[in-house]
Design a protein around this nucleic acid. Structure first.
Lengths: 231, 231
DNA sequence: CGGATACTTGAGAAGGGTCAAACGTAGTGG
DNA sequence: CCACTACGTTTGACCCTTCTCAAGTATCCG
């Protein structure tokens, strides 16, 4: 369904983009429906409602949705991962979308084009409905994660969620696109606790780490038990 | 906009319902568009997708959205308050809607009627869009509440949210429709901490209590400061 | 009046935050 | 190429917040 939006393209357009080059914040026109933009870590991803662009989708990398930093507090309320849909209207203007890692690519869609597509093709309209649903589902899951008591339960739930959302076909290894600080902000806990919990999960042989950002779930039953556990 | 759905009715239909009587779980037909159901505290509110009913709205009282109690854990992931829209499809089947207090009334809408309405009247379609938005907004606010660190910040944010959502025209007193236990489940903290925090907020003269369930914000600036505080 | 439920308050224990330091890695400039 | 720096990550020590257990009070309902 991701591919349907770029139908009739053998090579995805973002693959053609130069990887190790300077970053252009200005979207590049590649399609009558979507424009792409590349961002490096920490860079703000701006939508251009003036240009009719009101929604988008992450193609590569990851984006974090932050509240505007008031009083020094920084809060991440959502991670937008490859394939996830992002609708500007779902959020107020008090939020900012930022690239969570280098080489993040986002496709921007024009609302008028979308509406025209939806009107012309009922299947398209249905897909857009499903995308909105998927966004709601993401919210729900985050509430379930945040609602857990105990740092290990929260982090375990987060890792399981990431595994589900970042799953590549067949591969059981997951590369986290965000830093420990981002995870800490997202889960409303301190970086140190995040680090300690990862160490604890590794010590209990529930996960293994490859490098710093890559992990693998080795004892799913135990991990799910730790997540469900109230303590 | 609530009234528009029951247009051309002087007396709201739920006012005509007998207040202190036995509870009937089976919805009562009162309108070609909506049927009403009354529930007492703790009772499950069932939608009837088989009858084409897939969405509803709380008219009086309050409902809590719980996850199915697995392994003894009970979790409330949302409160649906008067005026709030509830769409069955937004949630999986692992969730249950329950009345949070006695005399809770819900209006059930048939999806087919809704679609017909939306097709016939563009303004209606727009309103339904806004309702979906409002649901998303609810999720966002809950994430912001849950993401706060510190029990007082969480509870303060919750009370401010309740004040906004339950505000009657002009009245500054707010009657909480749910128990401390429900609040505790919702905020992922213990009942005792909820109670202590309310006492603390009262001691700091930020709120006053009338009875057990009714409160009033007397020092909004201080309360908002306590909510924003990271500690 | 008695029982059940909801709420409050207290004391002790544990979990997580804060402060601090060390380590690894990447990027920079000489 | 190698310091040098900046940043992300990990670990330790200590203390504060919150949970748990427990008891007491209040309120509602039979």
């Amino acid at each position: 369904m991701t591919n349907q939006m770029h139908a009739a393209r053998q090579q995805p357009p973002w693959e053609a983009m130069p990887r190790p080059s300077t970053v252009e914040d200005v979207p590049i026109a590649v399609d009558p429906v979507a424009t792409l933009s590349r961002h490096k870590r920490g860079e703000r991803i701006r939508m251009r409602p003036a240009a009719g662009e009101s929604s988008g989708r992450i193609i590569r990398g990851a984006a974090r949705l932050c509240i505007a930093p008031s009083l020094g507090e920084r809060r991440i309320i959502d991670f937008v991962l490859p394939g996830d849909f992002f609708e500007l209207a779902t959020y107020g203007q008090a939020f900012a979308l930022e690239a969570a890692c280098d080489d993040t690519v986002m496709a921007h869609y024009r609302s008028r084009s979308r509406e025209r597509l939806a009107e012309a093709d009922h299947r398209m309209a249905e897909e857009f409905r499903e995308l909105s649903m998927a966004t709601a589902s993401r919210f729900r899951r985050q509430i379930l994660i945040l609602g857990r008591v105990g740092a290990i339960a929260k982090l375990g739930a987060f890792l399981l969620d990431m595994e589900t959302r970042l799953a590549q076909h067949g591969a059981d290894r997951v590369v986290l696109p965000m830093s420990r600080y981002d995870i800490a902000d997202y889960l409303a806990m301190s970086v140190e606790t995040v680090s300690r919990c990862i160490t604890a999960l590794r010590g209990r042989k529930m996960i293994t780490l490859i490098g710093r950002r890559e992990f693998r779930v080795v004892d799913r039953a135990a991990l799910e038990a730790a997540v469900s556990c109230l303590n």
